[in-house]
Write a protein that binds this DNA or RNA. Sequence first.
DNA 1: TTGTAAGCGTTATCAC
DNA 2: GTGATAACGCTTACAA
Lengths: 329, 329
Amino acid sequence: MNKAGKAPTMKDVAREAGVALGTVSKVFNSIPVGESYKIKVEEAAKRLGYRVNSYARGLRADKTYTVALILPSLDNPFFALLADHICVALTKHNYRMVLAITKADPHAEARCIRMIEQNMADGVIGLTYAADLDVNENLPYVSIDRFIGPNIPCISSDNFGGGQMAAEKLVSLGCKKPLFLRIGSDVPGETDKRGAGFVTYCQMNGIEYAAQRFSDWQGIESVYKFLDEHCHRGKLDYDGIFCSTDLFAYHVKKHLESIGVCVPEDVQLIGFDGLKRPETDEFYCSTIVQPIQQIAETAVYILLHGASEQFPGFMSLPVSYAPGGTTRE
Amino acid sequence: MNKAGKAPTMKDVAREAGVALGTVSKVFNSIPVGESYKIKVEEAAKRLGYRVNSYARGLRADKTYTVALILPSLDNPFFALLADHICVALTKHNYRMVLAITKADPHAEARCIRMIEQNMADGVIGLTYAADLDVNENLPYVSIDRFIGPNIPCISSDNFGGGQMAAEKLVSLGCKKPLFLRIGSDVPGETDKRGAGFVTYCQMNGIEYAAQRFSDWQGIESVYKFLDEHCHRGKLDYDGIFCSTDLFAYHVKKHLESIGVCVPEDVQLIGFDGLKRPETDEFYCSTIVQPIQQIAETAVYILLHGASEQFPGFMSLPVSYAPGGTTRE
DNA sequence: TTGTAAGCGTTATCAC
DNA sequence: GTGATAACGCTTACAA
């Protein structure tokens, strides 16, 4: 130890190695210096337990190798998985991730952005709900699942295609009258396109269909009520349902069973997300699978390679269908 | 905008407000200055969109209001929830959280610590597996679920008490020959005490019991094999099982049912963790519930209040029992 | 109370 | 290739 409790600096290393400060800096920045000097510096550094202070470096270079991720929460497995993959992808690129959790509160979201603008990060990946998030023009930002503005890249699954795929699948599995059901936030977002894709497919193919949207504040009970009203003597008016998320599909399924409608015998069900049960690694239901890892890696790539010019402002990644026991096949 | 693309500095604000640099600094540090100056500064700052640069501040003050969390992954709901609560707790204290994911790889863990030592954080909360993690003495560190050394506070649930509680519960529910089953990492950790508590309770109360431990590398099949060997003509040698985790209990239950043993009729099952299914918010099984939020808040509190002296080096938080359908009550 | 100036640890620019 | 020296943006004595 050289000075009680204080971390050693480049100066200390220089003194210890008997070289000039600048030489030490070069060694730690992989700028060529004489081999003998390099060795002296490295040994001195190891002896002192020296680590470069990235705040000082960040101050100088205006680059911190830190990216912020803004997420509503981690108690939803989709978000948790997304955070996991994004963190791993960032680590691969030698970046750190600071995580901010907003509980979907627009105030908290704004506060986060503000915080990050304090040079805490080189860029931001955000999955936000604020309708009018204002992000500084010169803070690189990539949005997930929500289109913020023409200059801000947005990554999401191919929600529209997934909706079409779900409709097509239900029809090809024999459904004559499919239904789309969604419940969620009132803030418009990319995920709304799931329903749009479904509807478009049905219309273009002359399929008789229905679509019903609920808001979070109405509660899932309103969905149950809707189902009850469309169930006559144990028979539902629809023979296939596309639900906007897997977890929602799970509840719909449970409710249908509770009123005597069998899944998939009477009604086939397709969800969206591709979540797996933690305990068995099985899908909750037949589902349109989001490529979470690819979303994460794409977001990181676009953010770090400042590719907002070369890439379209909006990018949708291909989804796939996976059977999960709520369809007949 | 004042200087193309570059963020405004205190100097800019000072010029804009027509005051001295130091005055601006004081305003942003809540150090009293004349009211009229304060207003001038605040208005100038708003006009310029000024944000204090926390790297410069950190460099000066050697304080960054950032805490690092080291976690194996986020794809386990227990870890995800822990991260969520820790992040929220830190935010409440005006701290940021940088997250590092290690996939339980000791190399990655060491790399993280090294990274954090680069003054990237004021402290660390770690849930690690490296047997010999060496953390710098002057980097505040709080460990979760693993005792690292006498000078490093460790927070965990009362694993021992939980083990006792599970045994007691099984016995009070009528079990005559309970079994403890665990599968997990070979690295010793606090969670090993779950079995110890179970065994101690049985021994102290003269209960006939058994305990079997498996390592991750043996695979869950070895557990199944063990159960098969102890099942004779549809009857298991044990009438109660305490499993080291909820997810593990789930698998044990499924396997028992597959060989014709009914839960909870023939065998009662208690797990550990208190995880809830994402889809229904119900427990996976009867379980000893870990106080995740309290663990998170305690870890944060101890880390931030540098209370390592006042607090015991080791701290265990009370668990509770919750029925979840795999016990008879 | 306000303004000035000296660092914090690093990097980059130049003469040597 | 090496080694002083001047920034980077902010805090904090200390002087006015």
